[in-house]
């Protein structure tokens, strides 16, 4: 094989995954030397039509970041799938839905209302909302259609590999790029560029296996250094999150927020966090237990901060239905 042809694309994402690729730093010229980067809207001048004109399977590997939340995202996912031999869900958004996926806790109507009408900084006297099609004197304008629900990449197209992380850390990204260049990727469907345990396993903070008798928000506590944050009552997602980042956050005194997603063998990250927290509560009294658990505000938002679209229930029941 000649130089592999590589593409990068972003859908519903913040742009951090693009920076994460650049974060490989002085290894970037090595990549540019060893591969032909043929499509990368963030970094080069390319048009969607260039992509449409390619033969199917023309691209060897496409690193796709971002979730799917509008018709443009979905169309590009389909197009890049067709044009790529290997499609990689790169980063938490494409893998499990990530922060954009939290939109699944509200409805499309709520989102439009908040963004275009009710937010205090918005001035929109005519209550104008974006329309898919708009007539103007110059002709008809078209915008992508916003979906009610955010999807992961593999909920709309077939995906070959997953690289977790928000964003993936540079060394892990480089491992994956090297494996691509050397042709040593494992079998299809694998999570690559991550560990096979949980964050606690990589975290050097001391665990004394003491139970929790109350939760405290991180900004209200000056934590004892070198001691497991969770055991001090700070909610830490490390107990239900895949390893691979090297426990970056706890190593600087911040709890893990869960960005590497569900650990191996786990489908639903939030359920696993409920399970793990439930086993370390220091009470046998139902009322006291309930009071301790009430110290966690919005469990769904916290436990699925990075994986709601990939969860079992995927989204909140809306549609004006009161259960």
């Amino acid at each position: 094989m000649g130089k592999p042809k590589v593409a990068f694309y972003w859908a519903a994402s913040c742009g951090g995954c693009e920076i994460a690729v650049l974060d490989i730093g002085d290894r970037l010229p090595v990549l540019a030397e060893a591969a032909d980067i043929i499509f990368w809207p963030c970094a080069m001048d390319v048009k969607y039509d260039d992509l449409r004109a390619m033969e199917d399977d023309f691209i060897d590997v496409c690193l796709f970041n971002g979730a799917i939340r509008n018709s443009e995202n979905e169309e590009m996912a389909g197009l890049l799938r067709k044009k790529s031999k290997i499609l990689v869900a790169y980063g938490s958004c494409a893998h499990e839905g990530c922060i954009p996926g939290l939109a699944n806790l509200v409805s499309e109507e709520d989102i439009l209302d908040r963004s275009y009408i009710s937010a205090p900084s918005v001035e929109n006297p005519g209550n104008v909302l974006p329309e898919v099609k708009t007539e103007t004197p110059e002709g008809e304008l078209e915008l992508p259609e916003l979906y009610d629900t955010v999807y992961t990449l593999d909920q709309v197209v077939d995906v070959d590999y997953y690289v977790p992380g928000c964003p993936p850390v540079a060394d892990r990204t480089w491992e994956v790029l090297e494996a691509i260049l050397d042709g040593t990727l494992p079998g299809k469907g694998n999570v690559v560029g991550a560990g096979s345990k949980i964050v606690c396993d990589e975290c050097s903070l001391e665990k004394k296996e003491t139970g929790i008798s109350g939760f405290v928000r991180p900004h209200l506590l000056e934590p004892e250094p070198d001691r497991c944050l969770l055991e001090q009552g700070v909610y830490c997602a490390g107990i239900g999150t895949r390893s691979g980042c090297g426990a970056l956050c706890p190593s600087v005194g911040m709890p893990c927020r869960g960005c590497y997603g569900a650990p191996p063998g786990v489908f639903d990250q939030g359920a696993k966090i409920v399970s793990a927290l439930g086993s370390i509560i220091d009470s046998t009294d139902p009322d006291e237990t309930d009071a301790i658990m009430s110290g966690i505000p919005c469990p769904a938002g916290l436990f699925y901060r990075f994986s709601l679209p990939h969860s079992i229930l995927r989204r909140k029941i809306t549609d004006g239905y009161e259960d």
Binding site: V274, L277, G278, S283, M293, I296, P299
Partner: peptide, 10 residues
Amino acid sequence: MARVALLSRL
């Protein structure tokens, strides 16, 4: 018991 307390909130 603790899991159900949390799961109910979820």
